[in-house]
Each structure stands twice: as structure tokens, then as C-alpha cells.
């Protein structure tokens, strides 16, 4: 487990990260989300041990992180680009060697990954000759070639076509099965929603909300239901349980009063109309992200959902 406790990082005249804490559990993808300039990069850099925290601790399996972390951590930065003039296989092998792999092992692993991502034929090409997608693949390999226990990926999917996104996603899921610690930074909320088990939303250095995806959604979900029915639904809008309604012929989106349990509301409905479909609408992560950040910016109050 990677534990970040009361992490604060101050620069000369600004506080980049302000007293945040979270745990990243093995085998679960952890989404570190937030708008630009929220403090994600600073957080990542302190975990990478590139920056020393002003206060707070970061421990890995109970031990404070130190330079020993170098060989077990893999990092994919958001900005891409490698040594343009160098050959693909050479670059991968170099980074593998820097992660303390032996020469033979580094070459074997590099070849293994190039084969896995179907770019084995490009091994002796200069990077500048490769397509953007293939350069991305090589950069991804550089982050994972040494089989790291901790993997930090900043926007790993950007620049990939849907097929390659799928490939990368499969690899990430296979890593979770292997019990790796994975931190995913992304703006693509849909991806985060599909992949992350836990999320941490940060804005202006402070925690906005955090927890498992299910918890967060629950805490942000308004009491919203979707009903499809046949029969006369005109009575719906006059029900005391209903705050707001969007109704069509055989379909309605209904916002219920907070104390109303959706299943009790369903029970009420079936006595009056034929319900063909009933579902509780969960907010998307995208909506949570936008709402939470907007709320914070408007009210300046911290909306902690924990």
C-alpha cells in the first residue's frame, strides 16, 4: 500500500499541495483527478521522490519512500517525447538499464514488450521516423519495462486510437491482477469512471472529495430516477414526493425529495401505472467533477463527501 499522509508542499510564494492524505491499495487503480494546476503534478513528483515534501509523509508498505523507490517505480509523464534521434530499442533498453535491470534482462524485456505491443519491427528505427502512436507505445514501454510495483501514469490514453487504448487498458487491468499500485491521472472522466476503483479529486492543492468510486457517486447523487411506463402519467407532477420532473409521453426523469427512498416511490407508482422500466440515475464522474469544482469556486466552501 502506498500511503500519503498530510502531505503539504509549499513553494516560495505558493502552496501547491495543502495537507492531503490518501491510500493507494494494491490491485486497485487510483484516479488522481483535478483541473489544470490543481497540484496533481506536485503530488506525483513528491511520490516519485523528485521533490521533498514540506511536511507530511509518503510511505510504501510502511517504509518511508527513499531513493530505493527508483527501481520499483514507473512513470509516464503527460508531455511525451523521447530522444528523437535514437533508435527505439536502444531507448527502451537504456531506461530499463537505468532501472537497474541487467544488460541481458533489459534487452529481453524490451523485446518482449515491443512484441506485445506489435512494434517489434520498429526496433531499429529512429524515433523521429515513427508515427505518434508508435512513439507513445515506446514511451509506455519505457514506464513499464522493468515490471514496476508502483506505476504512475499521466494521461496514458491520449494520442492513442481506440484499438490501442483498448490494448493499454487490458495491460493496466492485467497489472491490477498482479497486485500493482497504479495511480492514473487523467482529464478523461469516462476512462477514469471505467478503470478507477478509487478516486481523489484535488483542486488548488486541496482535497475536494475522495473515496471509492461507488461512495463518491452515492454522495454526489441527487435523488434522481428514470421511469418508462404506459398509462396516464399526468398525476406524477402533482405528487408530494416529486421536486422536479421532465416528462414525455411514456418517459419521465424525476427528481425526488431527499428523504424519499426510490424503491418506495416505485411501489407507489406500480399501483397507478404500468412501469416498464425503472432506474436510479447515478451522476457521471464528469458531472461530479464539474459540479464539485464549480461549487468550490463559487462558494469557496470545501465540499467534503467523506
Amino acid at each position: 500500500m502506498l500511503r500519503v499522509e498530510n502531505l503539504t508542499k509549499k513553494f516560495k510564494d505558493s502552496v501547491a499541495v495543502d495537507n492531503i492524505s490518501f491510500d493507494v491499495i494494491r490491485g486497485r487503480i487510483f484516479g488522481l483527478l483535478g483541473p489544470n494546476g490543481a497540484g496533481k503534478t506536485t503530488t506525483i513528483r513528491t511520490i516519485l521522490n523528485i521533490l521533498k515534501p514540506t511536511s507530511g509523509t509518503i510511505t510504501f508498505d510502511g517504509k518511508l519512500i527513499s531513493n530505493e523507490i527508483f527501481n520499483i517505480i514507473g512513470y509516464l509523464p503527460e508531455e511525451r517525447g523521447l530522444y528523437k534521434k535514437s533508435k527505439a530499442l536502444d531507448v527502451i533498453t537504456y531506461f530499463a538499464r537505468l532501472k537497474n535491470l541487467s544488460k541481458v534482462k533489459a534487452e529481453d524485456e524490451s523485446k518482449f514488450w515491443m512484441e506485445k505491443l506489435e512494434i517489434k519491427n520498429l526496433a531499429n528505427k529512429r524515433l523521429e521516423e515513427l508515427s505518434k502512436g508508435n512513439q507513445q507505445k515506446i514511451q509506455f514501454i519505457c514506464a513499464v519495462v522493468h515490471n514496476p510495483e508502483i506505476l504512475i501514469l499521466d494521461e496514458p490514453f491520449s494520442g492513442f486510437d481506440p484499438i490501442n487504448q483498448e490494448t493499454i487498458k487490458d495491460i493496466l487491468l492485467s497489472f491490477t491482477n498482479a497486485g500493482k499500485i497504479i495511480i492514473l491521472c487523467t482529464h478523461q472522466m469516462e476512462t477514469a469512471e471505467k478503470l478507477c476503483s478509487d478516486i481523489f479529486l484535488i483542486d488548488k492543492g486541496k482535497e475536494v472529495c475522495s473515496g471509492s468510486l461507488v461512495e463518491v457517486k452515492k454522495s454526489f447523487g441527487g435523488n434522481l430516477v428514470k421511469v418508462e411506463f404506459s398509462g396516464d402519467g399526468s398525476f406524477l407532477s402533482s405528487l408530494p414526493e416529486v421536486i422536479n420532473i421532465n416528462s414525455y409521453n411514456n418517459y419521465a426523469e424525476i427528481e425526488l425529495r431527499e428523504d424519499v427512498k426510490p424503491y418506495e416511490f416505485l411501489r407507489l407508482l406500480v399501483t397507478k401505472i404500468i412501469v416498464t422500466h425503472f432506474s436510479i440515475v447515478e451522476p457521471t464522474l464528469n458531472k461530479i467533477f464539474i459540479d464539485a469544482i464549480k461549487n468550490r469556486h463559487q462558494s469557496k466552501t470545501i465540499n467534503t463527501a467523506k
Binding site: L48, I50, N67, F70, Y75, E79, R80, G81
Partner: peptide
């Protein structure tokens, strides 16, 4: 300058001091 602009430097210093 190249290593800085494409953040290679961060990969490097997360591999060695």
C-alpha cells in the same frame, strides 16, 4: 533543453539521483 521540454528529465530523475 530537449529533455526538459519533453519531461524526459522527470523519467530520468525518477530513475537516478
Amino acid at each position: 533543453v530537449e529533455e526538459k521540454s519533453n519531461r524526459l528529465i522527470e523519467i530520468l530523475i525518477s530513475s537516478c539521483t
